Amino acid sequence: MAIDKRGRKLPKGIRQRGNTFEGRYTHRGESYTVHGNTVSETQDKLDDLKYQLKHGIYIARKDIYLSEWIEEWLEDYVKAHKKIGTYTTYKDLYHSAIRPEIALLRLQDITVDTVEQIYKRIKKKREYSKASMETIAVIIKGSLLRAERKQLINSNPAKAAELPIIANCNEEDKKQRIALTREQQELFMECAKESYLYNLFYVLLRTGMRVGEALALKYTDIDKKNNQLHISRTLKYVEGKFVEDTPKSKTSIRDIPLTDNLIKVLDAQRNYWGFKIDRIDRYLFCDDEGKPLYRGRVQTQINRAIRKAREIDKTFPDFTPHTFRHTFATRAIEEGMEPQVLKTILGHGSYAMTMDLYAHVLPDKKQEAMKLIENAF
């Protein structure tokens, strides 16, 4: 049973949202919501809703704010039907980017021009990446499509709305796209030797795993018989707790071949803290109490090693855990790994994603490639 801000129990189906209250009721698989300024007002609306639904006289709401509808859509539809990571991403973007721009807009008043103006205001306020803006559009389109299907609006105006022109990447994207040179890679690992996450950095650099996938690894994922590492989950921190989620896409569920050196490092990690990491519920990379690791702690350890590296090389760049993935892909391409093989190891959802990496790396090898075929003519 829910409680209000004062700790008082609320009636079934009612919860407090900010300074107002929300009542929810499910009828024949469909969720319905009412709002009120007080508990009694919300309860009256909820009772009236139940009566109308029971007697077949319910008429879809005709007066609802867009913000109210999107929040309802996030909680009742996205949270129930999408991955927890998707729900969290949508919710965060909604609150940071969309909500401030739609405060007084009513659902029934939204037009194509309204949606395009929302996009322009969001873009003007903050230079979001192309990927973030596309996700913002998905949120608005998806919520309005649901409103159309529930007959709250006649048609979805977001279908015809266009996003403003956005550069392919901003500074944040550029940081994500950094790949360490061989010299930087060696210097970093040397400076990270004292870090309790050294083994994690080693594994990330030599497998191309996403950091969430690595933090979700358990010893049972190591298949020594077939020399493979099974990737089947990712670890996220959502609403104050750690949550296991499925990987980014279907192709992200994969097996990564293991080398002898990787197996040695993984075995060493098993006993790193002095206790065996073989319990099925314990993560391979954890803290000294066996608890899961926050991504922020990974970044903190990276930053410490970077500061040491800059004592030797003042130009050493800042980077994020994702840089290990891009560095692995760069080394693989430089050593001649076939695109299809790299796609499988990285768990890319499309061949185009892998070829984009090739386009990023190969220009530096043009001269070398030309020399190789010089004697062919």
Score class of each variant (00 low, 15 high):
Glu334Pro: 02
Lys150Ile: 11
Glu72Arg: 12
Asn154Trp: 12
His55Ile: 14
Glu244Lys: 13
Leu145Ile: 06
Glu368Asp: 13
Gln176Asn: 13
Ile102His: 04
Asn375Ala: 08
Thr259Lys: 04
Ile302Ser: 04
Thr234Met: 05
Arg106Asp: 02
Lys123Pro: 00
Gln299Thr: 14
Gln108Lys: 15
Asp287Ile: 03
Ala161His: 12
Ala160Asp: 14
Pro11Ser: 09
Val298Ala: 11
Tyr32Asn: 03
Pro157Arg: 11
Asp364Gln: 15
Arg325Tyr: 03
Val34Lys: 01
Val361Thr: 02
His322Tyr: 09
Asp288Glu: 13
Thr111Arg: 13
Leu74Lys: 10
Leu266Ser: 08
Pro363Thr: 14
Pro11Leu: 09
Ile263Leu: 14
Thr26Ala: 10
Thr88Lys: 10
Ile140Cys: 03
Arg295Ala: 05
Thr135His: 07
Gln108Val: 15
Arg182Lys: 08
Met133Asn: 13
Tyr94Ala: 08
Ile345Gly: 01
Cys191Leu: 02
Tyr358Thr: 00
Ala160Pro: 04
Arg17Leu: 08
Glu194Val: 14
His348Asp: 07
Tyr358Cys: 00
Arg331Trp: 03
Pro157Gln: 10
Arg106Lys: 15
Asp113Cys: 01
Phe328Gly: 02
Phe319Leu: 08
Leu229Val: 03
Tyr65Gln: 08
Ser31Asp: 09
Ala80Asp: 06
Val361Ile: 08
Ile345Thr: 06
Lys50Asn: 08
Ile64Gly: 01
Asn199His: 15
Met355Ser: 02
Glu134Leu: 13
Lys276Gly: 01
Arg24Phe: 06
Ser31Glu: 06
Glu183Ala: 14
Leu74Ser: 06
Ser249Asn: 15
Gly349Ala: 14
Glu30Cys: 06
Lys366Gln: 12
Ile122Asn: 05
Phe324Ser: 09
Ile84Glu: 12
Lys45Val: 07
Lys308Asp: 00
Leu235Pro: 03
Ile280Thr: 14
Tyr119Thr: 13
Asp4Glu: 11
Gly240His: 06
Asn168Ile: 07
Lys9Glu: 11
Val39Ala: 07
Ile231His: 04
Gln340Gly: 00
Ala309Pro: 02
Gln185Val: 00
Thr20Asp: 05
His95Cys: 05
Gly349Arg: 09
Ala309Leu: 07
Asn154Glu: 12
Pro157Gly: 04
Ala305Thr: 09
Ala179Met: 09
Tyr90Pro: 01
His326Ala: 07
Glu171Ile: 14
Leu215Gly: 04
Gly349Glu: 04
Gln185Ser: 11
Cys169Gln: 12
Gly18Pro: 01
Thr246His: 02
Cys169Asn: 11
Arg28His: 10
Lys83Val: 10
Thr135Tyr: 05
Ala167Val: 13
Asp44Leu: 11
Pro247Thr: 11
Val112Phe: 03
Glu186Arg: 13
Thr135Pro: 00
Gln52Lys: 14
Ile84Cys: 05
Arg8Phe: 09
Glu172Trp: 09
Glu162Ala: 15
His348Cys: 01
Leu293Glu: 12
Gly18Asn: 08
Asp278Cys: 03
Leu180Tyr: 04
His95Leu: 12
Thr354Phe: 01
Thr246Cys: 02
Gly142Cys: 07
Lys343Cys: 01
Ile231Asn: 03
Asn261Ala: 15
Ser96Asn: 05
Thr88Glu: 06
Leu144Trp: 13
Ile98His: 03
Leu145Phe: 07
Lys175Thr: 11
Arg24Ala: 05
